[in-house]
Design a protein around this nucleic acid. Structure first.
Lengths: 194, 194
DNA sequence: TAAAAAAACTAACAATTGTTAGTTTGATTG
DNA sequence: CAATCAAACTAACAATTGTTAGTTTTTTTA
């Protein structure tokens, strides 16, 4: 029976994500959202149970996608640098498919109610895993013996901001973008003179 | 006569910036702000003329500080890599002094009304100047011949996220943080084997 | 200490918010 | 064609929003 490309609920969520990216969760009213879909606000409630539920759907599904993706990387990849390159790919891939949702993930998570703590848990676990990968790379000599927190911060900040840049540079496909970004993050930008 | 450490208006703006960082501009009500200052909402209007004015003060002053700072760097510094290191210092310095305001600069600028276009102008000028610095470094062989947009994006994303990390790592003073961050951004993280 | 200025207050407003109840329309199914 | 069900609608609600007017309290000045 169910063989649609997109349910009405998913349409609402996707439209909401777009508006949330532009204005943020709090500044988008149910009337704004309804109007963007060409219907009245009350009609939304035939498909979703609250504004909060929309935010939860957007954020939690993405957060779980990242968690899952990182688990796979942990299992399969060999060297630390390779793992980091896979993490870059993961971010580019997920972000390319849902730039709007990524804005909410980054900026609207504090408006989560019941699921806020769960989100924060996933997030800190993710950071911790990535920290471990970097630390291991330092220990086995693949990665320079620089402040780990700063390396983690630099990489993660860049990856978390991808949602802002990918829409502007869509002439680069995800493959190429991942490769180039990995090079810049890993090797830096300066020409070695030695 | 006027020799106070902080006027009442500045207190309001600083308290607002703190709340805006936690919840975002739209989710902070004038009653929240008043309550955080131990007064009633109406009393705020003896010092400021609107909620919008508070946001404007926070964002525009910071944006102009960055613009001014970059102009100075353009005039004095010599090599491209040195200029980039100065830009890192600039971000670390401004962000260290006002992490709350930096959150609004990054996340609440879209709620500016009259000053929105002015802000966007400053911002795109800033990006363009930084792009020019990188491009020059590539031309004169200081910087690798990699995609300029990606290098710009990577550096700027990291610098713009500083407001999220500095409060958590205040055991690092701005000097040391700038140095270490410059190294990571410029040289990357991997150990060169050649 | 009296006057002036600054900064708080109470009370209220018009507009907007998320959401519910009950009803009508349109498409799908038996 | 009749019945069912999904999805839209109108109307309304109680709460909350930024802001104003007018008044009282507190602090500074002369």
């Amino acid at each position: 029976m169910k063989l649609k490309t997109e349910t009405r609920k998913e349409e609402i969520i996707n439209t909401a994500a777009k508006l949330f990216k532009e204005r943020g969760y709090s500044a988008v009213t149910m009337r704004d959202l309804a109007s963007a879909m060409g219907i009245k606000a009350a009609s939304l409630y035939n498909h979703i149970k609250s504004k909060q539920e929309i935010l939860k759907e957007i954020i939690i599904s993405l957060a779980e996608e990242f968690t899952q993706g990182l688990e796979l990387i942990q299992q399969s990849s060999t060297s630390s640098v390779e793992k980091i390159e896979e993490v870059v790919k993961l971010h580019v891939s997920i972000t390319s498919q849902n730039t709007y949702g990524m804005a909410s993930l980054n900026n609207d998570w504090m408006h989560l109610e019941e699921k806020r703590d769960y989100y924060l848990k996933l997030r800190s676990n993710y950071e911790e895993e990535l920290r471990r990968i970097i630390a291991e790379g330092v220990k086995n000599g693949e990665i320079i013996d620089e402040n780990i927190e700063i390396m983690l911060f630099s990489i993660l900040s860049t990856l978390r901001s991808l949602y802002l840049w990918i829409p502007k540079k869509d002439y680069l496909n995800p493959e190429k973008l991942s490769q180039q970004l990995s090079r810049v993050l890993v090797k830096g930008i300066n020409k070695k003179i030695d």
